[in-house]
């Protein structure tokens, strides 16, 4: 009985630790929602010589923003 209880407690602790770890991990590259916009992060995808795209925002109101970097 004691062992089973220990297992449950240990299981809960491990599950809690996993949830905490996942919740503090920042978003990886990819798309996510933010303030009514679908935001896509890229790992600085090169689109031309000395030109990369960092993010695109497509929002519920139909607006579209592209975030570039260039030299």
């Amino acid at each position: 009985m004691k062992t089973a209880f220990r297992r449950i407690v240990l299981g809960l602790v491990v599950a809690g630790a996993v949830i905490a770890a996942v919740s503090v991990a920042p978003a990886a590259f990819g798309c996510h929602s933010s303030n009514g916009c679908d935001v896509c992060d890229t790992p600085a995808y090169q689109v031309a010589e000395q030109t990369c795209i960092l993010r695109t925002y497509v929002c519920n109101d139909g607006s579209w923003t592209e975030e570039y970097c260039w030299g």
Partner: peptide, 9 residues
């Protein structure tokens, strides 16, 4: 009406 933002090196 698409917008551009960015960083010029």
């Amino acid at each position: 009406g698409g917008q551009i933002t960015g960083f010029e090196y």
